[in-house]
Design a protein around this nucleic acid. Structure first.
Lengths: 156, 156
DNA sequence: CCGGAAAAGTTGAAGTATCAAGTGACTGAG
DNA sequence: CTCAGTCACTTGATACTTCAACTTTTCCGG
């Protein structure tokens, strides 16, 4: 027997679905327009910038960017062609691929960051109190946790 | 001068970005597996089921599903080929296209709904209190509102 | 050691989404 | 009345994502 959503749950589902469907495209749109890159491209560079020597493995980067290896591989191929990252085989284990952000990639990231951060602030955080931010954190962490333990689409 | 995010904002941004990147794919994955349709396909049928005579215009449906007309047009073409909807020219204004869900489409929607609702419940609502749901509603409505008034990607 | 299984990636094809350009229908200023 | 502009889509090309299959490398039980 199906357990339908309560009225309140349903009422909150519409805006949640809306955010899910529109937030990423909105970020894509700004980054595409101003920096000729996808939000996912940006995430890859941003995550690489946090790593020692701007270097990590494909699997680790896929984990940090919430992507499948396949998706990441295609995107890294593109970023490599643009000279923003380069691949190399790991010394330690020859089946591991290392990705490294180049100086050129870092310059691009630094140039894109202010506009992107401003967009995130203006689309999400402007007008939220500290408690709101704490609620947001708690709720999103909860949902993310449930997605990750659901086994759906679990190719990370 | 760029105003960066505070530590708390940044801490909440990661799970929010994670939800944004993984929730829709997770829903796609379940619906694809169990009902051979996309989450967006489902949304189109669900929104049509709320309309009088299961009929509305392309523009109205695009609005309700948060999609561009172009995207919707491609998808409706696909759904039409499967016999789940049909198009016709409006009597009132000959530049308006009406979309109507067929009985076959309704059957498909009814068959898909329980699994989809169960997935939404299990990924989002399981374990949330009433206050959590209220917080979620408030926060998502706020963000959605800001996205919609931002002018980014505003082709709806 | 050996051989099968699993891990880490890559690739090509198929499905989706976006972008820009085009079509036909209405509207309204002159 | 008319014709330039706008509206409501549609279409085709390009770009992105997913899926399934494959390669190479490593691990592990016997």
């Amino acid at each position: 027997m199906t357990r339908w959503l309560t009225e309140d749950e349903l009422a909150s589902w519409f805006p949640l679905a809306g955010v899910m469907l529109k937030l990423n495209p909105a970020l894509d749109s700004q980054l595409q327009r101003d920096s000729d890159m996808t939000h996912f491209d940006y995430l890859c560079l941003a995550m690489l910038s946090e790593e020692d020597d701007w270097t990590t493995t494909m699997s680790a980067l896929a984990g940090r960017t919430n992507a499948s290896l396949s998706r990441l591989s295609h995107v890294i191929t593109k970023l490599e062609k643009r000279g923003w990252v380069c691949r190399s085989r790991s010394e330690v284990s020859r089946r591991v691929t290392m990705v490294r952000m180049t100086d050129e990639g870092y310059k691009t990231l630094v140039a894109a960051a202010p506009g992107h951060v401003e967009t995130v602030r203006s689309l999400v955080y402007e007008g939220l109190s500290d408690e709101d931010v704490a609620d947001l954190h708690r709720l999103m962490a909860h949902i993310l946790d449930r997605i990750e333990s659901s086994g759906l689409k679990a190719q990370c």
